Computed example of a mutant assay.
Amino acid sequence: MSLPIAGSTWFDGRVPNPRSHRGPTFADLLKQRGDSHEASTSQTLPSIIRDRSWTDEDGTVWRMRGGDQPARKTVEHLLLDPEVRVLLIADLRPVDVALKDRAGLWAEVRQYYPEAKRREPGDHTDFAVAEFRDSQRRSLLVIERHC
């Protein structure tokens, strides 16, 4: 007797469902957590950088500047500026990064910046960085962590 192949018929006439023994999908897990606003209709995760604009909790609309990641010097300058809001998105929710925590964040992000592509085997971490501006020319630095 041979084992059934996906798409073949079982001995009782049922067609096997290849997903029947898998756990919940990532979208299902997001729904359980309450993060289903986009996960229920799409397999891609929300991304402020990919969307190129973001409206914050106060209704301020932020629009991305440029197309590529800013130069390292630009990022360092923005991180040091107390007038610049910095958002880290690591768990689907934007978190404001306090001025005192920015140096530590940059130490981690800098390792993955395009010019420094030295990774340990099995390290799939990546960061996307972008500068945004609002209508009053204030700056926002968005850092997205992808694993």
Score class of each variant (00 low, 15 high):
73 K>V: 03
101 D>C: 09
125 T>L: 04
74 T>W: 00
1 M>N: 11
119 R>H: 11
111 Q>G: 05
36 S>G: 13
46 P>R: 14
96 D>C: 02
38 E>S: 06
76 E>G: 13
62 W>S: 04
52 R>A: 10
6 A>D: 11
136 Q>N: 14
57 E>P: 01
143 I>C: 03
55 T>L: 08
3 L>K: 06
45 L>K: 14
147 C>K: 12
13 G>M: 11
48 I>T: 14
10 W>Q: 12
75 V>M: 14
133 R>T: 01
65 R>N: 04
57 E>K: 11
109 V>D: 00
18 P>R: 09
13 G>R: 15
66 G>Q: 03
107 A>E: 12
102 R>P: 05
69 Q>S: 15
59 G>H: 08
144 E>Y: 04
101 D>S: 15
139 S>C: 10
13 G>K: 10
83 E>W: 09
8 S>C: 07
106 W>S: 13
20 S>T: 08
105 L>N: 06
128 A>C: 08
92 L>C: 04
117 K>G: 11
4 P>D: 10
126 D>T: 01
14 R>T: 06
99 L>H: 09
121 P>W: 12
73 K>R: 10
94 P>Y: 10
134 D>F: 01
74 T>Y: 04
36 S>H: 13
28 D>C: 01
104 G>S: 15
134 D>S: 05
57 E>N: 09
99 L>K: 10
101 D>T: 04
70 P>C: 09
23 G>S: 02
136 Q>W: 15
59 G>K: 09
139 S>L: 13
90 A>D: 13
11 F>M: 06
52 R>Q: 13
144 E>C: 07
97 V>Q: 07
8 S>T: 09
101 D>I: 07
94 P>L: 10
31 K>N: 09
68 D>P: 02
60 T>S: 08
89 I>T: 05
74 T>S: 14
60 T>I: 15
4 P>C: 10
31 K>M: 08
60 T>H: 04
47 S>L: 08
72 R>M: 06
21 H>K: 08
5 I>Y: 05
7 G>C: 11
7 G>L: 09
126 D>I: 00
69 Q>N: 09
33 R>D: 07
12 D>T: 08
1 M>A: 13
58 D>W: 06
144 E>A: 01
84 V>Y: 00
88 L>V: 10
117 K>P: 01
34 G>P: 07
60 T>W: 10
8 S>L: 02
87 L>E: 03
105 L>Y: 07
86 V>R: 05
145 R>Q: 14
70 P>D: 11
37 H>T: 05
51 D>Q: 05
147 C>M: 08
53 S>R: 13
46 P>C: 07
40 S>K: 15
115 E>N: 03
